[in-house]
């Protein structure tokens, strides 16, 4: 800090001049040299942080291992005729690679229904509160940026990272399949796999926005992480038990019911189970990856009567899972809206 005056004189007068220049030539220059918007700057920095963090590397290794494991199992079983030709969706090999299993290991999309949650929680649980704890939040918000830009960047950057991750995994799978089996891929398969990836990103996005919500709510990162894991455990383990208990207590004995009543009750129970995001995700991915699946609920004999045993078209599968997709998007948006509401007007203090 020696002789600051000397330093500063030159520094500032130079800048002032250059400022004056830009003011003069603003109309011509600004179009070419528009500064990057703060939102993009934050997103870039967040992505950099995510990719370099140990936490992401651990999660990445976990997911890649799962992926390789399930791929290995399906590759060894794909030649088994009992597993492949029982269902009349011959030809869609790549979907089978994703779904076939011999029972020793769940297939990839089932794995993702809980790993995705871990991934989302892991990437978001300290998004806001750690910055507040470190005193960087107040510094950041003292800059000319909008608060929603900050919050949105916290949500978008992990999403970009995981989109890249799953997209590359999907493409790896397709490429590897091409090399190993030599079977060419069909457009429908590409579409279905892309939808599967989209669904997975959406699912992770839900957990991400939930954990960001908790990180806005709780001052301590550990509290928000534990709460998020608690919610996840509740939905994966206890929710089913609770629903079953309630059903047993309230619904009449199925032995005394007509078939249509049983069907109605079944649909009701399924409806309740679908409050769990993992259920929505499993439903949606199962339909997308197995074109033979026609319905997510029970079907009556009448409904099945005229059905031709052929795989559904892509559009029909999407139509079946549309409620699930909507539900996931709605849950994500809701979490995000609440965190937005909490964050926008709150006092920022370090």
């Amino acid at each position: 800090m020696e002789s600051p005056v000397v330093y500063f004189k030159g520094l500032f007068s130079k800048k002032l001049k250059s400022n004056a220049l830009t003011v003069v030539g603003a109309s011509s220059i600004s179009k070419h040299k528009q500064p990057v918007s703060p939102f993009v700057v934050i997103v870039k920095k967040e992505i950099g942080d995510q990719v370099r963090s140990w936490r992401f590397i651990v999660l990445l290794v976990l997911i890649v291992l799962t992926f390789l494991g399930s791929m290995y199992v399906s590759m060894t079983n794909i030649t088994n005729p009992a597993a492949s030709s029982a269902i009349p969706d011959n030809g869609l090999l790549y979907l089978k690679i994703l779904t076939t299993t011999d029972g020793s290991l769940p297939s990839f999309h089932i794995f993702m229904s809980f790993l995705g949650a871990i991934l989302g929680i892991g990437l978001g649980f300290d998004a806001v509160n750690s910055e507040q704890q470190n005193g960087t939040l107040i510094r950041l918000l003292a800059q000319p940026i909008y608060r929603d830009n900050f919050l949105l960047a916290k949500f978008i950057s992990p999403l970009i990272v995981i989109s890249a991750l799953f997209l590359s995994l999907g493409l790896l799978m397709i490429g590897g399949g091409l090399v190993i089996t030599g079977v060419s891929i069909e457009i429908v398969e590409v579409l279905r796999i892309l939808t599967f990836i989209l669904l997975t990103v959406l699912y992770v996005g839900f957990w991400l926005s939930l954990s960001i919500l908790l990180s806005v709510k709780f001052k301590q990162a550990t509290t928000s992480a534990l709460t998020a894991i608690g919610i996840w455990l509740f939905f994966t383990i206890f929710y089913k038990i609770v629903v079953n208990m309630v059903v047993k207590a309230f619904l009449p004995d199925p032995a005394f019911l007509s078939q249509t009543d049983i069907l109605d009750y079944n649909n009701l129970i399924l409806g309740f189970l679908r409050f769990a995001p993992s259920q929505l995700y499993t439903d949606a991915t199962t339909v997308m990856l197995m074109p033979a699946v026609r319905s997510l609920g029970p079907l009556t004999m009448e409904q099945m009567a005229g059905a031709i045993p052929a795989p559904l078209s892509f559009r029909e599968s999407v139509l079946i899972v549309w409620p699930q997709i909507t539900g996931l998007i709605a849950a994500t948006v809701m979490c995000f809206a609440i965190s937005y509401y909490w964050f926008m007007r709150r006092e920022i203090r370090s």
Binding site: D49, R52, N134, G135, T136, I138, R139, S350
Partner: peptide, 10 residues
């Protein structure tokens, strides 16, 4: 400049 500021340590 806040009284208790932090920087990104990494």
């Amino acid at each position: 400049m806040p009284d208790n500021m932090g920087f990104y340590d990494g």
